[in-house]
Amino acid sequence: MMKYIILFVLLLVSFLGFSQQQITVFFETNKFQLTDREDYKLQNWVSENKSNKIVAIHGFTDEDGTTTFNDSLAQKRVNTIYDLVKNQIKIRNDFKTISFGENFNQSKNKAENRKVTIYYILEKDLPRENEILGIKEPQKSEEVAVVKEINYPEKMIFENPNGTKSEFKLDKIFMNKIGNAAVGEKLKIENLEFQINTFAVMNESRGKLYELLLVLQNNPQLKIEIQGHLCCMPVDRTDLSTKRAKAIYGFLVANQIYPPRLTYKGFGSTNPIYPLPEKNEAERAANRRVEIVIVAN
């Protein structure tokens, strides 16, 4: 796995005091029913947490099998856990069930990847539930929006597999623009490139992911939708635009961004900037993009 080193990272400390908890149960290969041991673990947790509240349930698989099979298996695992806890513990009305399948930061130990994680809030912290979840209270109409200027780091340095280091200059103007954008505003992530016909981010574009990560870390009320777009082909037969958006979503979640703050969607070539077929590479590059839509700020 590619290592990275972040220089001059400036993070808000507000998340350190948040009391979102989690418990993880594990499954056998290709199974979506719990073993007796894991079922006991879950039921014991439920009996000790009836006054707490579940806010999300996420399912995962290892890399064995097809992507379609793993997505289905992860969802079945989520459904299993939900059915076991739904009538025994408080659950947030708008709680999220998400199946990542194999598309997340995989452990080398496959057994650790076959799991479901429950996120929950302790009873003592329920009065701060919206704050913990990054949900901003509605502003009064007479309030004037305040422009925030966060002093983000100037650059990042990544360590490559061969031991060399790559430096990436951060776009601080773009990062502050996201943090101050209005709800509904759409912003393109410039210079974010993928390997051809895949959802793997090019090595030279890794810094763009960390720009987005830092913005979300420093703006805990921010919620976004990640939208993927393709060029050239009128039909996205492999749903590549969704996979690219989901890859960015998975990166953010793997780096501790709370999943309910994020959604993703692929549009294929249905919303091009330039009509298809494009006339040149500049038009193709413009159509081949990832955009961020501000859901809450």
Rank of each mutant, 00 (worst) to 15 (best):
E131T: 10
L133E: 13
L133K: 11
G134T: 10
G134F: 02
G134D: 12
I135N: 15
I135M: 12
I135C: 01
I135Y: 14
K136L: 11
E137D: 13
P138R: 14
P138H: 03
K140D: 15
S141F: 15
S141T: 06
E142W: 09
E143H: 15
V144K: 10
V144Q: 14
A145Y: 07
A145E: 11
V146S: 08
V146Y: 10
K148P: 02
E149W: 11
I150C: 01
N151V: 08
N151S: 05
E154F: 00
E154C: 00
E154K: 09
K155S: 04
K155M: 11
I157F: 02
E159S: 12
N160C: 04
P161F: 05
N162T: 10
N162K: 05
N162G: 05
T164R: 07
K165V: 07
K165D: 13
S166N: 15
E167C: 01
F168L: 01
F168V: 05
K169W: 00
K169P: 00
L170C: 06
K172I: 04
I173S: 07
F174Y: 11
M175Y: 07
K177I: 03
G179I: 09
A181M: 08
A181H: 09
V183N: 14
G184C: 10
E185C: 03
K186N: 04
K186L: 05
L187C: 01
K188E: 14
I189C: 05
I189W: 13
I189V: 05
N191A: 12
N191F: 13
N191Y: 08
N191C: 07
L192V: 12
L192G: 07
E193C: 02
F194Q: 14
F194C: 13
Q195Y: 01
Q195I: 01
N197F: 07
T198W: 06
T198I: 12
F199L: 14
F199W: 11
A200P: 00
A200R: 15
A200L: 01
V201R: 10
V201C: 08
M202L: 10
N203Q: 14
E204Q: 08
E204N: 03
E204H: 12
S205H: 04
G207H: 10
K208N: 14
K208C: 03
K208E: 11
L209D: 04
Y210D: 06
E211S: 06
E211N: 13
L213E: 05
L213I: 02
L213Q: 14
L214N: 13
L214Q: 13
V215R: 06
V215W: 07
L216M: 04
Q217I: 02
Q217P: 01
N219A: 04
Q221C: 01
K223W: 09
K223V: 00
I224E: 03
I224P: 01
I224V: 10
Q227P: 00
Q227N: 05
G228P: 04
G228L: 03
G228S: 14
H229N: 13
L230P: 00
L230A: 02
C231D: 11
C231H: 06
M233T: 15
P234H: 04
V235W: 00
D236K: 07
